[in-house]
Every structure is written in C-alpha cells, then in structure tokens.
Computed example of a mutant assay.
Amino acid sequence: MLERLELEAFLTLAEILHFGRTAEHLHVTTGRVSQTIKKLERRIGADLFERTNRSVRLTPLGLRLYEDLRPAYDQIRSAVERAIADVRQAPGTLRVGFVGAAAGQIVHQAADLFSRHEPDCRVRARETQVAEALQRLRAGDVDILVTSLPLAAPDIVVGPVVISEPRMLAVPSDHPLAGKPSADMEDLADIPLLRLAGALPGDWPSDRWPERTPGGRAIRGGPYFETFQEALQLVGTGSGGMIVGAQVTRFYNRPDITCLPFSDAPPIDWAPVWLKSSTSLLIPAFARAAQEVANRVYLGGR
C-alpha cells in the first residue's frame, strides 16, 4: 500500500512536473517531495520520472502508474468529501463562496432573491481566497462558489456566466507600460506576470499567466501569491504585473497601480461552479437566482 504523501506527491508531480510547485501545493519542502518520490521508486524498483536540470517528465512506467492511480484516487477523495459534506450540511442551509468584491455583490443579492423562492433555506455567504477557493469547495466547506473562468477541472460543473468584465493589465504606476492608453498581449513580454501559488493544471485559468505572447515572445514568471491583496501589494511595489478584471478599478483602486485595458483580449467571465457529485436541487436553484440578478446588474439581459 502507498502512504498518503507518496500517493499525493506522485500524482501532483505527474500533473505539475515541477518539484518546487508540487511542494508548494502539498505544503511541504521540495526536499521532502524529492525524498518521497525516490522512496516510491525504490519500492517499485524503477524510475517513475526522468529528471534533468531543466525539466521533469514521466517515464512510460510512471505514466501507466499515473493512469491507473488517478481514477481510483479521485473516487476515494470524492467519497470522503461527500461524507464530510453530509455531516457538515445543516438542513435548510446553503453555503455559498465567492472570490472578490464583484462576485460578493452577486452572491448577496442572489441570496435575497433565492430566499424569497426558498424561504425555508438559509444562505450563508463566505468570501474565499483565490488560492483556496476550489479546495474549500472540494472539502465541503462551501456548496457552490462564484469564481472566474475558464475552469477545466473534470469534477466541477460550471453554471451560467454572471459577470463579464473587460480584461486589464495591472502594472506598477511607475512602470513604462503605465504611460500607455491601453495594453496588448505582446506587452506581456515586457513585465513578469504574478502567478497563483499551488494551482493545479485545469483548476485555475491559464489565460491569467500565459507562457508566451501570440507573437511567440517569452513571458517571464513573477512571484507567487496566495491572496488577491497580496498580489496587489506585489504589483504596487514593482514586483510584476497581473491580468485582472475591470472590477479592480472600482473596488481595489490604488495610487501605486495602473490598470490598462487590453485592446486585443476577450473579457473575463465569472460563474457559479459546484461539484458534479452534488445532488442538492438548491445548488442549481441558487445559480439561476445569481443569473437573474446578473442579468439586471452586470450583463444587461444578455
């Protein structure tokens, strides 16, 4: 039998293919991840990863082990999460998470509308930090979450878009880009982009930290952040830039940050999301209430 850390370290490294980011996601040291993988390889009797100074790749054996283990691990995790959710879920209570101020407005207004249709159900709205939002959804801390798209996680249902806002580039106010009237995607090569700590592939929008511009220029990676306020502080102090939605200029305006609208990028969409394993009819009902509120407030009947 595999120990829990062996299983999680192997699966996470197989998806991220980076020892440092795997350690960040698991909240352990890089050395601990390396030792755990070596221990697992000794038990199996062969290498599971090919390592060089520049890259980490699965061996054919490692790929086959990943393909065998991943579905079983997901099934076990989902079963545990459902059991936890059943224990925590109080009758008549819907726990709604949101990321950011604009999503919070939608959630609170939707809660009022939802309560008129479901008077016996109490809505508990909870703000979640960007780095932990999906973790809290999967752990059963919230039943439904309003967050930004796109999401490609196979265990997540994406509801209707409730916010569609212009995409902007946040840069330090003393950066040369701050003097431009707008930004384009090629400008991303001129400033390192902040990255979300612990993000798994598919869990958070990769369009927020692309590796190259449309013209093929490399985009430097900036510091990692866990909370949005931490990210704003990093931008304001000159550590890098960040792709944001236009709500930043309304709710998070700072004199040390300039936000430039993109001239060649699509808007950022937000939507309620929930677990595919969820069976409560209250969850899609709340999503419909959020969409109704959004049609009046943000989307103009779209």
Rank of each mutant, 00 (worst) to 15 (best):
A133E: 06
I144S: 03
T128F: 12
R136S: 09
P172W: 07
V158D: 08
L169T: 01
L151I: 13
A131Q: 03
P160N: 09
V157F: 02
L151F: 04
V162D: 03
T147E: 02
R136D: 08
M168Y: 08
L145C: 09
G140Q: 02
T128S: 11
A139N: 08
A170P: 00
P166F: 12
A139Y: 02
A131W: 10
I163P: 00
V146F: 11
M168L: 11
Q135Y: 09
V161Q: 06
L134D: 03
L137T: 04
Q129C: 04
A170E: 05
A152G: 06
A153R: 15
P166I: 13
R138N: 12
R138V: 15
G140D: 03
V158P: 02
L145G: 06
V161K: 06
V142W: 00
G159R: 00
P160D: 15
L149K: 10
T147D: 08
G140I: 00
V162L: 07
P160K: 03
A131R: 04
A152E: 15
A152N: 09
A131F: 11
R138Q: 11
S164H: 05
A139F: 03
L137A: 06
L137I: 08
A139H: 06
E132G: 10
L149T: 07
L145H: 10
S173I: 07
A170S: 10
P166V: 14
A170H: 02
A139E: 06
D143S: 12
V161C: 10
I156H: 07
E132L: 14
V142M: 02
P150M: 14
R138H: 11
L149F: 09
P154W: 12
P172D: 01
S173N: 14
M168D: 03
V130K: 04
D143I: 04
D141K: 00
D174F: 03
R167I: 00
E132K: 10
S173Y: 01
S148L: 15
S148Q: 13
P166E: 08
P172E: 00
L134C: 07
I156E: 01
S148P: 01
L151Q: 07
V171M: 03
V162M: 05
V157E: 11
A153V: 13
L134W: 03
T128P: 01
M168E: 10
V162H: 05
T147Y: 13
L151S: 03
S173M: 07
P166S: 13
S164F: 05
S148M: 15
A153D: 14
I144H: 02
D141V: 01
R167W: 07
I156L: 13
L149I: 09
R138P: 02
L151K: 10
H175F: 11
S173G: 13
I163L: 11
L134P: 05
V130N: 05
G140S: 03
